[in-house]
Each structure stands twice: as structure tokens, then as C-alpha cells.
Design a protein around this nucleic acid. Structure first.
Lengths: 236, 236, 236, 236
DNA sequence: CATGAATGAGGATTCATTCAT
DNA sequence: CATGAATGAATCCTCATTCAT
């Protein structure tokens, strides 16, 4: 039962993006409210203990519901996780493209992508944690299909690639492989976010994002780089 | 699947790539042969089905051994996985540092790091697959400690950072944050490898590695990049 | 074997012999009913096949429950056995002391101890069988601690010893070592019960109990015995 | 392969009762030597860890033999335990009857039985420990048949009963049930020995044995005891 | 004979899912 | 709708016994 309107799981409670459509009957509302509550609880648990490490009993207890009730709203444990991830992916996805579309310049788009990724990560650490561990995983049939996962990064990557391509066409930057460069940007961003999630680098700081944008821009604007002078000198 | 001859990383750092230490007595040799065979089989299975999805029965069957026999060589399923990962991590680690040390220039070190990563990945796809999924995971106590995992990338990163630092000192490249840049290199490399593993980009091609090195070098040698001219012009 | 009605010793000391505490709500009642049923079934099985020889599958089947259900009521197989034994030990213990306290004379106390032991044994043969075999045993950590087992006999023995002591003080009987004599009584009783359980002597007969009391009383009231006359005569 | 001559397992080594028949070929001797060694080792282990808690690996290691070798001498683990117990039972049995036969008077026989039991227990604590725990037990088919176990005590009991019977016939003591009295003696002795083994009463002391003999003799020589005077007086 | 590596049947425990109330 | 007691398939590990060397 996919939601018609986007559900945003927020730490303060459950909010429905846009107007909280009051004309829907109460029943439907409660339905969605329950679904959202379960998803939020599950999100926190999956992030803390992993998919296999989270029991349906745990989800039920922390949701304040009975175990059987969970099955009124979701077909299975995997379905919970799947919906959880897909909801977030969709929102992340939409936001990302929206922000990037709003930017005109390549540099603007790059910065938009990186900073939005960082922001979303800070707001939804649990989601990211699950995404980076369980989603990639593969106990039995995977929770998300390869395609679903691929799209997560590949659409932003495609958008970046397109921006790069047009930037090259405008002679703004030199010739380089747009897709490869786009993926490099995506990878750098993801890596930085993971370190942030694992506590290796301080969260909340915007230094990382700024540096990454700068780093990327240096590469894009200079590519292809000249051979290092020193090495050249040594070769003489 | 009887083993032709296991090409495996051995606890003592020995490789059975065809050249075999013959001074060992036969018994010891068989011992190690079995261990290596089990590890190899398990590696393949873990990569295909994940840790939880792989049964001891499966490992036994594919090893051509009885289930009980596995426990003569390893204490538990987790122990198999742990040894598997640690062996590879150690070798990968040693090789990486050795290759990088062999290079004098920063560019050389960067290229060494990237190309060696790609090579090792191509040779040991299964290992990488496990590393990128199960190792990071967390059902119950993790298979590898955070420290063991962190070291996997952090030492090469540290080596890269050091190389960058000294390159800056020699005025070879401009000022930038050595650690952040080093991690960017590591992340780009890892991302490219993962796409390669998942079949998104063609394996065996050396184009990726070359492009990455180029891309990175462009960033390092230009940093900090000038503000984009066009954007500046547009801003007027 | 569906339960007609479990006659079982309950943790709180309640008996479900037909009179049932009706003020408990139904849920709680069912809970206890199940626990009691499982304990009874297990008691019978442990007695017949021993602890190790009894499978959880067996207990489940004979209880008319699924294997998993057992674990809703007890943490483990050992926990079932432990609770079984402790419940009985407590009741046996309480009854024994109560009966003995009710008697004034030493002979009365001795008879009370012996006859109550016989009665309880006749009512709960399975329990005694387990107690005499598994409890004393020692595969891995014992089911009951040494202390828990020791108390089983040592408190009645202590009570007997005290009665003997005061009887000596009243000059009712001669001087003898109260503890040693008390344990002799306990040992004689236990031995007779075991033979009864193993079918060596007919069960249900009260002849044994009467004889033992008589025998013990003869010893107590005559101690120390004069040297045998015949031997004395031979010595002349 | 039952031994023709009795094998006594002695702490100092392995001795064969009687003459160490040298005319047997060396092979046979070694055979028996091995058997005896295994039995001794197993005895110690069974006593310490119980039957189920003792692994064939343990017995092999402590015997200084390979695991497979054990099966050249014994059909199974249970066979080791059975032979162990039967050997000891036979010797204990023979000694007991011999000592009792050597005594003329009932009192002498009783004292002989009790003191020999204590002595044998002190010399072979391991054996007794096994006998008192595992023998009675019943994981799967019992190690010793009911009959074999019964005989352990029932023959001495029968001998005691016979002595009592003839003592009654000689009017040495009053009328009482010979079997019941005999078993009472056996039970008292066994109980005292068990407490000794479990450390409840000090080992090596002969006080216990002396007291028991005295206690028993008091009972036998007075039976049936007169009703307690005090109680009689109270009844007036 | 002696070995000890290999075997595999056996069993306790977990937990996602169902369904009667 | 909501519940939570009941289910039983699934899986890791042990250890007595065998047998090729």
C-alpha cells in the first residue's frame, strides 16, 4: 500500500509533507499513522542492531503494538525494511534532483549535491546507516533489488554527468569522461558521509562538504592535469 | 568442487600459487591445504550468499568434506569468515604499502595505490564482496572489530596523506588538507571498485584506474581551484 | 497425553489438586496450567529416560505442545528440570518439618519423618527417581547446586539431630552422637525408598516404614549396646 | 574379553592379583596392561567429570594413546565404564564376602562389612563416585543392568541377613526381619560413605565406622525396643 | 598393531509468521 | 481491528565411532 503523499519520518513525531489532508477519513489516517510509527521504530532499530539483529518482538515492543499487529500493516519484516528504505530513497532522490535543478552552474550543482547529501545524512542517520550496511547485503534474497539500489546513486550521478557534459560543451571545463567524473563525486561524498556516521570525522561540521566541493572543482576545472613539474624536471 | 590448487593467502603470509614450500612435512602441508581449501570455498560462498545465508552444510559440501571436519580446522563459522578477511586484509595491506613505498613521487604513489587496489580486487573479487557487505555488518557481535576494519583503509590513507604532506612541503602542489584529500582518493577508488564488482562498469578494464589517477592528480595539482570564470562572468 | 488435571507443586506453593484459586484471572490460570503440565510431563520423562535421554521433542509431544512453546515457559531444558526438582524439594521439605514439629516425642518425630518420606515417595515416584539419579549427577554444570541438594536431606537430619539431642538431655535415651544417628535414620529411609522405587521391595506396603521406625528406635533407646553375651561368654 | 585373573587397579601402577603368570606370552600381557591402563585413566575421568562429561578424546590423551586405539581394547565408551565397574564390583564383592566369612559372630560380621566398605571406599574413591552417580543413572540404556547393580549390595546384604537369621536362631538376638535389618545396615553404610565422598564428613576417620557398628548392634540386640517409657508415662 | 583425520547423526535453541479469540 | 500464544522450520555445533594409512 504505497502512500499517496510523502511521509516524512521526523524525530519530533510524524509529519506528512504538504497539507495533512483532512478530508481523508479518519480510518485511513490512523492507518498511515500506524504505518509511519512502525517504520520509524524499525528504522531506529535496524540502524542500531542491523536487519537480522532486530526481532519483530523488538519492533512491536518499541512501537507499543502487539507483534501480530505488525502483520496487519506489513507483509513481513523484509517488507518493513524495504518500504523504509524506498520511502527515504524517494524523498532523498526528489530533494536531490530538485536542489540540483535549481542550480545553474556546474559548480553550483556539485555543491548542491554534496551539501544536500550531508544534510540529509545528518537528519536521517539511521536511514543512512541501514542503507550502507543492510542494503548492500545479501542474506538470502536481497531486501532491495540491484536496480532499486543502483538508482539511489545513479540518478544523481546521471544528473551530475549531464551537467558536466554540458559544461564541457560550453568549454567551461576541459574534456573528461562525464560519467566517471560524476561517479567520483558521488563516491567521495558517500565516503565522507560514512566516516561521519562511523564517528571517524566530526558530524555537523560543514568543513568536509566545502573541502569536497573545492577538491572536486579543482579536478574538473583542471582536467587533464599537466604532468607533475618535478617529475618532468627529473626526467630531463 | 574439488580444489585444483588453492591460491590462497595463508596465515603465515605464504602463498600457494604453485610454488610450494617443500621443506614442510607432508602432514603439515595437508593441514594447510585443507584450511586453505575450506577458506577458499567459504570465500566464494560468503560472497555469493552472505554470511548468514551460507550454511556450514554448504561449505562442507562444496569443500568435499563432512560438516564435522570443518570444526577440526576452525572453531566456528565466524572464525572461518574472520580468518578469511584478516588474511586478505593483511596481504592487501602489506602489498599496498610496499608498492607505495616503492614509488618516489606523489603521483606515482597515487597511481600505485589505485592500480594495486584494482588489481587485488580483480584477483579476489569474492573477498572484496564480503568485505563490503558482511564485514561492516552487525548481526550480533561483528565479525571484525571496528579497529580491524578501520585499519583496512586508514593505513593506506595515512600513507597517502603523508605523501601529500611532503609534496606540499616541497611546493610540488598547493596547500590542502592532506587527510581529507587522502580519504577522497581512497573513497573514489573504493567506489569504482564496487561498481566494478556489481557489474556496473566493465571489469578488467584499466581505463578506470587511469582516469581516477588523472582526476585525482588534477585536483591535487590545482587545489585550490579558481572560482569558475563563467559563473563569475554570469554573476556580473 | 493431554493432562486431565495437573497435580503439581507450584512455585508459589499452591496445589492444583482440584481446589483451585478462582480469584486469579483466566490468563494467569492458563499460564500456570501450562507450566504445570509441562513440568508434569517432563517429570515423567526424566524419571523414565533420564535428563540426557529426554529430548525437548519428547516433552513437547507428550505435552501436546510444539517445541517452541516450551521455550515460552522455560528458558531451557535444564531450567525445566531445576524448577521441577526445587518445587518438589521445597514442598517435601516444608511438609517434613511441619509433620515433625507436630510431634512431641522423639519416637514420634522419627516415625513422622520415615512415614512422610514413604508417603511422598509413593505419591511422587518420578520426582524421587530423578532426584536419586540426575540431581546427584554431573555432566557439565550440575542441575542443582551442591547446596541445594545437601539441604534436601540436611535440614530434616538437623531436625532429627536436635530432637535426639534434647531426648538425651531429658535422659530419655543414652548418650550418642546426635548428628551421626540422625544421618543413619535418613540413610536407612532413603535406602528403603530406593529399593521400593526400583521394585526390589513392594511399594505401598507400610511394613517397611514400621520396621524402620522400630529398628531405629531400638538402636536409639539402647545405645550404647552391651557387648554381645555370647562373645563375652567365649571370652571367659 | 574378560580377564582370567583379577586385575587390581592400584595408584602405584598396575598389579595383577596373585602371581603375575609369566608363562603367558608377552603379547597377552601387554594387552592386559593396556586395558588396565585405559580403565584406570577412565576411572579417574569418569569420577571427576561423569560419564557424559568424559570424552573419548580425554581418555585417549590421558592414557597416552590414540583415540582409535581405545577401540582396539574396548567396544565402546560404555563398555569401558561397564568393565570398570564390574571389575571393581567383583573384587569388592569377593573381599567383602571373604572378610565376613572369616568372622564368627554376628557383630564381627557387621563390623567387618562396615569397615571393609569404608576401607575400599578410601582406596577407590573414584570407583565409588562413579558407582553412586552414573551407575544408577539412565541416559539411554543403562550402563549396568539392574541385576548387576543389585548384586553389588544384595549379596553382602544376603550374607548379613543369613548371619542375622542364625543369630536369631541361636537366641543371641531377638526376632526381627533379617532381610530388612540387613538392608538397613547396608544403607547406613552407603550413606556414610557418600557423605565422606562428598566431603561432608572427614575422610579417613574410623569414628564413623565404629559408631555405625555400635548403632547397628544396639538395634539388633534390643529389637524389638520397648515403647518409650516417657511417652508411656505421658499417656497415663 | 597403532594412529588420528574424517565422519554425520543427533539435539537444543531461535524467531518470523499465523490464527483463534 | 488488535492481540500474543503457539508454531515448527531452520541451523550451528558436539562427539562417539570408523577406517585408510
Amino acid at each position: 500500500m504505497p502512500l499517496d503523499w510523502p511521509v516524512i519520518v521526523h524525530p519530533r513525531g510524524l509529519f506528512y509533507d504538504g497539507t495533512l489532508a483532512t478530508q481523508k477519513n479518519k480510518h485511513r489516517l490512523v492507518q498511515e499513522f500506524r504505518r509511519a510509527g512502525i517504520l520509524q521504530t524499525a528504522c531506529s532499530l535496524f540502524a542500531r542492531r542491523g536487519f537480522a539483529g532486530t526481532l519483530m518482538d523488538d519492533i512491536a515492543r518499541e512501537s507499543g503494538l502487539a507483534k501480530g499487529t505488525l502483520y496487519l500493516y506489513f507483509r513481513s519484516k523484509k517488507a518493513i525494511c524495504r518500504e523504509l528504505l524506498l520511502n527515504h530513497l524517494r524523498v532523498l532522490h526528489e530533494r536531490t534532483l530538485a536542489r540540483m535543478t535549481g542550480e545553474r552552474t556546474l559548480r553550483g550543482k556539485v555543491e548542491a549535491y554534496i551539501s544536500l547529501s550531508f544534510n540529509y545524512c545528518d537528519e536521517h542517520r539511521d536511514f543512512f546507516r541501514i542503507l550502507h550496511t543492510e542494503a548492500a547485503n545479501l542474506s538470502g534474497p536481497p531486501i532491495l533489488s540491484k536496480t532499486q539500489l543502483r538508482d539511489w546513486q545513479s540518478e544523481p550521478a546521471a544528473a551530475l554527468a549531464e551537467a558536466i557534459r554540458s559544461s564541457i560543451a560550453r568549454r567551461e571545463i576541459g574534456k573528461l569522461q562525464p560519467e566517471a567524473a560524476a561517479w567520483a563525486i558521488v563516491d567521495i561524498t558517500r565516503g565522507a558521509i560514512e566516516r561521519r556516521l562511523s564517528g571517524q570525522s566530526p558530524a555537523g561540521g560543514c568543513g568536509d562538504a566545502a573541502f569536497l566541493a573545492e577538491f572536486v572543482w579543482a579536478a574538473l576545472s583542471r582536467f587533464p592535469a599537466p604532468r607533475p613539474r618535478k617529475a618532468a624536471g627529473a626526467a630531463k
